[in-house]
Design a protein around this nucleic acid. Structure first.
Length: 430
DNA sequence: TCTGGGGTCCTAGGACCC
DNA sequence: TCTGGGGTCCTAGGACCC
């Protein structure tokens, strides 16, 4: 039966941290504030690309993924910091804890951004007041800047948060779509990368407005069902809900590494696979997951990349099992050419307790943190000599820091991807 | 001196089954 | 002188995002 009344409009916020890693480093070290700062890996190990940079660095043209030497050429005074992922993860956890003081309907989408559904939060204040409060408290309590989009759905909220940086708040209503969204180039749209933009341009679609009015059949022929979805989004249609649980539905766990130099020696490469399987095994253990599919990624000297996967009869999670599967795959498909990067990923994940065949009393790993968390209270006491949290907080829940303990140095969702307690459902069935 | 590492989702072909 | 029409599983690869 059709609903007789239109569904109540939703109010969705998208909170997007501004140059997150660089901002966290600045929160730790005030000396860095106002200076061109970049987070980058080690060029000696061929990991020397810009991961994030401060707005001061951007003024010089420094951009994410730019090789370090190029960034230095543009900005000779650029300050370089190695990434400190533990630090970013705990800052992230503190940030999401703060968001959850407004509503439980918080969906993290990556380490530095998330959605909130504040439709039923009118008792707290207007959407704009809530956005302002969030932005101010993240700045005051964590010393981190963010931009916020306010809109009736995820797509528009995401688009809006992108419009004013840093420290912007942008409202994007349905009625603003023709004047604000449609004049933008299609390539600007979330979900449209360079390939898709080229394809759309090839049929004369240059702006989001043109995409919004494009022909169904033509779009489907060009882009498949994604074409239809993009056209809907261009019209401001998006009914994906804010799902706080989605963070637990991880589908793969993988680690990869660019080798310090190209390697063609088999023994050396197998050693790398040992190391990678150790990392994957450790993360699978923490997340209490097992994999029934193992895949290996090989990037050759010329950057040509292949992935080869194998479905397993029995799920694996131990290092030696993962390594064995990975090595078999590798040896079967490697043509002997020089290798630039190797990766191992476990997919088709199951809950460990569902898959386990025998009780392993020693499987629980207690992994203590190696360095202090991004602790808002101690940080601010240090800085201001007073307790900002208590003075600012009238909310029930105190920000509590995630107990996440990964010592890994990966950019991923580990900061929240703990296994959901009491989860009865098999991930595969979800 | 080019181009990291973590992911998700989608497509497409072949095998296999009913 | 004949080969339909689903469906699922597996594998490989592409596009995109942060």
């Amino acid at each position: 039966m059709k609903e007789m009344y239109p569904k109540k409009g939703r109010v969705i916020l998208h909170v997007d941290m501004n140059s997150f890693y660089a901002s966290v480093e600045m929160a730790y070290d005030q000396e860095l504030k106002g200076k061109p700062l970049a987070i980058a890996g080690n060029p000696e190990e061929r990991r020397g690309i810009i991961v994030t940079c401060s707005y001061e660095a951007r003024k010089f043209g420094v951009r994410t993924t730019m090789p370090l030497w190029e960034a230095k050429k543009l900005c000779p005074d650029l300050i370089i910091k190695k990434p400190n992922f533990d630090r970013y993860r705990s800052a992230s956890a503190a940030m999401f804890d703060l968001l959850r003081q407004y509503t439980e309907l918080v969906e993290p989408v990556s380490i530095d951004e998330g959605y909130l559904d504040i439709t039923d939060c009118s008792d707290i204040g207007s959407p704009m007041q809530i956005a302002e409060s969030i932005q101010k408290r993240i700045l005051d309590q964590l010393d981190l800047p963010c931009s916020i989009g306010v809109a009736p759905n995820k797509f528009l909220a995401k688009t809006a948060s992108d419009m004013k940086k840093p420290l912007g708040i942008t409202v994007l209503r349905k009625r603003d779509i023709p004047s604000v969204l449609w004049p933008l180039e299609v390539g600007q749209m979330h979900g449209v990368g360079s390939k898709t933009a080229d394809k759309l341009n090839s049929i004369g679609i240059e702006t989001i407005g043109e995409l919004a009015k494009a022909n169904d059949i033509q779009l489907k022929g060009l882009l498949g069902i994604n074409g239809i979805r993009l056209r809907d989004r261009a019209n401001g249609l998006d009914n994906r809900r804010v799902d706080p649980e989605s963070v637990y539905d991880f589908k793969s766990i993988g680690n990869s590494t660019t080798l310090p130099r190209d390697i063609s020696n088999q023994q050396e490469l197998l050693k790398v696979l040992d190391k990678l399987s150790e990392q994957v095994a450790a993360r699978m253990k923490r997340k209490e997951a097992v994999a029934t599919n193992i895949s290996v990624t090989i990037r050759f000297k010329d950057r040509k990349t292949i992935t080869r996967s194998h479905k397993l009869e029995n799920p694996v999670s131990r290092q030696d099992d993962i390594a064995a599967a990975a090595k078999t795959l590798f040896l079967k498909h490697w043509n002997g050419d020089s290798v630039r990067l190797l990766g191992i990923t476990g997919t088709d994940l199951l809950d460990a307790d569902k898959a386990v065949k025998q009780l392993d009393l020693f499987s629980y790993e207690h992994d203590a943190r190696k360095e202090p968390l991004f602790n808002t209270m101690s940080l601010l006491r240090e800085k201001y000599g007073k307790n900002i949290i208590e003075s600012a907080g009238s909310q029930v829940k105190k920000p509590h820091l995630n107990e996440n303990k990964s010592a890994g140095t990966s950019f991923n969702k580990d900061f929240l991807q703990e296994r959901r307690p009491n989860d009865e459902t098999d991930k595969k069935e979800k």
